[in-house]
């Protein structure tokens, strides 16, 4: 089992963070070394000893296709399963907001995409081997521990990213790596 990569999209539909742990990720074609000039300029340096790339694919087609797939599947899920909203029940059961039918993952022959969306419209997505079981808890931790602590509570960092800006902050990169590489599924 393997975890290939981690992707974040903000509410303006821009890809704000990518982390690929291996170059053989299914989404990255082998000729990607010459993919686009702009992507290499925005790439963030890795902590010593880490493998793979950070923020190297934010602007390429893979990111756009992945976003499009997640966006459409999420819309389908919302449409299919969400009960018609009833004004009375919402007040009696205010914490059942998760009654919404939300997209959690989808799989293809070679990989699985694990997905979580926050109320602010941030998308978190991990691409892994299809045998990796549910990673919802990991996605929640990435949001609640890593993103909130290293980006939101970091006054030097933006929370609303201008187009083409990415999260390059080292403590965030380290935090994500620590969390993911410690998973049994990462091996």
């Amino acid at each position: 089992m393997t975890i290939y990569s981690f992707w974040m999209f903000d509410r303006h539909c821009n890809c704000i963070y990518t982390r690929e742990w291996t170059r053989s990720s299914p989404l990255v074609p082998s000729h990607s070394s010459h993919s686009s000039v702009s992507s290499t300029s925005s790439a963030t340096t890795l902590p010593a000893g880490a493998i793979g790339t950070v923020n190297a694919s934010n602007q390429n087609d893979s990111a756009k296709l992945l976003f499009g797939a997640l966006f459409s599947l999420r819309n389908i899920a919302n449409k299919l399963g969400t009960l018609p909203f009833n004004e009375d029940t919402s007040v009696t059961d205010p914490l059942a907001i998760h009654r919404k039918n939300s997209l959690k993952s989808f799989a293809t022959g070679k990989y699985r995409a694990h997905f979580m969306e926050t109320a602010l419209g941030l998308y978190f997505c991990i691409l892994s081997d299809p045998n990796v079981a549910d990673l919802q808890i990991v996605l929640k931790d990435l949001y609640a521990d890593v993103y909130v602590n290293h980006v939101v509570k970091n006054s030097a960092s933006d929370v609303d990213f201008p187009a083409e800006e990415v999260i390059g902050n080292e403590s965030f990169v380290r935090g994500v790596d620590q969390l993911i590489t410690a998973l049994p599924a990462f091996a």
């Binding site: 205010p94 914490l95 907001i97 602010l120 609640a144």
Partner: peptide
């Protein structure tokens, strides 16, 4: 604009369905 993220991370809530909520 930052506190809301902290709030959501702590509570795990999603979007409200009505203004009453």
């Amino acid at each position: 604009i930052r506190l809301i993220e902290d709030f959501l991370a702590r509570t795990g809530l999603g979007r409200c369905q009505s203004f009453k909520e």
